[in-house]
Amino acid sequence: MSALIEAEHLTRILPATVPVTLVRDVSLTVGEREFIAITGPSGSGKSSLLYLLGLLDRPTGGTLRIAGQDTSAMDDDALARLRLEMLGFVFQFHFLLPEFTVSENVQLPMRKAGRLSAREMRERAAGLLEELGLAGHLDKRPDQLSGGQRQRVAVARALANDPHVVLADEPTGSLDSKSSEQVFQILRDLVRKRGKTVIAVTHDMDIAARADRRIHLVDGGVVSDERAAPAAV
């Protein structure tokens, strides 16, 4: 099992007159095909850790390697490139661009990467959306969809460039239980069927219980990191 993400003593302190420690000395290794839930009380630094792992924020201490590459020496453009190719994000709020259609939103990262033809991008977006049960909504605007549907579009967008890791910050936080279950199934299938690694921050104990690995944070530090047998569900 090769390591996708290797964090050593990762620390993030907000500089201020009274510095705030968001993430405290976190060391962990994430391999392929892992389904990880990050749990912890509100304000324990779950989101902050996810932003660090997702290269949206830079640590103030420790090292972070993605697919073997040390990220501390990279400039912002190199980090952006790595995000584009390796990582996909899903946030609590869908963050779709309201002026673009569902299909166009999913194509955005592909267009940025610029590897596919216009037709290939359209077909790939349609394929992803179909698999996520949105076949009939390709040309709708985000505001014509329900919350659960939008979150699934966001998942499709995160998968646009076929990333190795999908990072999700409370992806079901604003959904009803039925939609939550749907999104959970999708995330789990990403691991089971597509071989992705998913790291999901969640408050939902039911979801956390069904993950392969649970990392519990308190005050920015890891207090437990346990694996469960994949046959739990």
Partner: peptide, 16 residues
Amino acid sequence: ARDIAILKSLGFTQGN
């Protein structure tokens, strides 16, 4: 601002 944030998180650079 939200769009800028999301585009950046998707991999768009400062230059973009």
